[in-house]
Amino acid sequence: MECNRCDEEAVMHAAYSGAHLCESHFRESVERRVRRRVRRDDLVPGDASPEDPQTWVIGLSGGKDSVVLTKILHDTFAEDPRIELVGLTIHEGIEGYRDESLAACVDLTDDLGIRHEVVSYEEEFGVRMDDVVEDDPENMAACAYCGVFRRDLLSRYAEAFDADLLLTGHNLDDEAQTALMNFLEGDVAQIAKHFDASLGPLSEREKQEEFVPRAKPLRDVPEKEVALYAHLADLPAHITECPHSSEAYRGEIQQLLYDLEENHPGTRHSILSGYEELAGIVADQYAGDDERDDLQECVECGATTTRERCRKCALLESIHAV
């Protein structure tokens, strides 16, 4: 089967668009979608200049998604003195797993010549996920602890590096799953927050002075295509799954989406595009009417939170109590 755009052999078929693409046209198509999303989300402000460059911190885990995002952003902005990239890797204390993916991050950032920073749960919080999973004082899934700690470190270090933007490698499958989960849970306030936190164009978001704005420019690209891009570009992505991974509900939604996509190609795209439009409307509706007025500093660590003591500090106390 030939590529639709040249006479090379196709390496992929996208049922949602009908396209068959060769390696170079496929890679070009992924890169174009990321750049288009950077433009549509207004990520580069009009007043960015070489004298006053923007600092973009990328949450770089070493998995395929963050590696592909880092590579494409680097290729896009390497010659642009208005944007400086920093890779931020978080070591959760998962024996073997994170050590290997950290090596992938070091290889990639060395190769691209971008700044790379590593922080660990052990140094920051005195905990390792392997031990947290073992003790499990709150009787929760591993990801429930880990997500709280990771978000805390990503935002704290983005702030410390004076970042203008915190970028993560969420792909189309990730975001369509989250959209569907929020919808099925009936959580309209969460949908509004999702828009202001990471989905909306920067210029349309309700201002959140307390947080470095987040962005997900890989979210138009299906997970499978991200993996294929990493494979074809021979990127140093780490290829084992987290041994503690256990998001049961997300797994159920993922399977549902695979089945829907099979019979109705384009379902993930239409879920996310409709969801983003709705999220923009409900974000307007909820503007000024949410918990933002209640934001305060955590009495223990000073992080911005809606409680007296933030979730991370509460979890750490129960872990250290074991």
């Binding site: 089967m1 052999e9 299906p222 499978k224 695979y258 099979e262």
Partner: peptide
Amino acid sequence: LSPHEVSVLVDGRPVPEDQ
């Protein structure tokens, strides 16, 4: 397996699943 969760390789090269 769903084509959305895997890649199919023939002699190390990815192939379009509809072929």
